[in-house]
């Protein structure tokens, strides 16, 4: 029964991706399925919700322009494609640092103010500090950390999206966490 249901779901999603190439309604359904995931990924990569909205928009508008030529067959292909677009767009945005720095500083101040009101004694890194440390990593490593620990994607899928071997990815994660730990020791409040 479970198997049959899984197959039914798979077929439905397959059809949805296929139909989205020619039917706006199907694309709208895919959008509803993926909007939150992509927005959440953008927030984790960009820190600021306003910027995340802008980049999420860019991602889905690119999907709208390219879905008709999208070669993938199923929902997983579509999801991987979406993440690949989102990765490119967020990395591209991060390269343009001027506006991001300002917004980051404002958002970090706001978060810290709330944190201080509720619990200012934690010894763990807060989100602004962790984000600042993540930004010190290479762009590819930033993406890996986000997909693995913030989006909770399995290694196999991240390897596919990032086009690297799973074994290589596992080794990389270990090293990236070491780097991140070192960066956390050197970042200071408000740094980006």
């Amino acid at each position: 029964m479970v198997g049959a249901m899984a197959k039914f779901v798979e077929q439905t999603e397959d059809n949805l991706v296929h139909r989205a190439r020619t039917q706006a309604y199907a694309l709208g359904q895919l959008y509803e399925l993926y909007y939150e995931r992509i927005f959440r990924f953008c927030v984790h990569r960009l820190f600021n919700k306003e910027i995340a909205e802008d980049v999420t928009s860019t991602v889905f508008l690119e999907v709208a322009r390219k879905i008709r030529t999208f070669a993938g067959r199923d929902e997983q292909d579509f999801g991987n494609w979406l993440y690949a677009i989102a990765i490119n767009q967020t990395n591209s945005y991060i390269r343009k640092t001027s506006r991001r720095k300002k917004l980051f500083a404002e958002a970090a101040d706001s978060i810290r103010a709330k944190r201080d009101e509720s619990n200012g004694n934690s010894s763990e890194p807060d989100w602004p500090r962790l984000y600042a440390a993540i930004l010190k990593l290479k762009p590819q490593h930033q993406t890996i950390i986000t997909l693995r620990f913030f989006e909770n994607l399995p290694y196999e899928r991240i390897a596919y999206i990032m086009n690297i071997k799973e074994t290589t990815l596992r080794v990389k994660v270990h090293r990236i966490l070491n780097d991140l730990r070192n960066h956390l020791l050197t970042v200071y409040d408000g740094e980006v």
């Binding site: 694309l27 909007y35 939150e36 984790h44 919700k49 909205e53 928009s57 889905f60 709208a64 989100w127």
Partner: peptide, 24 residues
Amino acid sequence: RLNIDTKPNSSHREKLREEMLSVY
């Protein structure tokens, strides 16, 4: 434990949906 706010704004979601389908 970071408790990051990733709740989307419903008006952005709806507006983007319309815009995306229009582009499509």
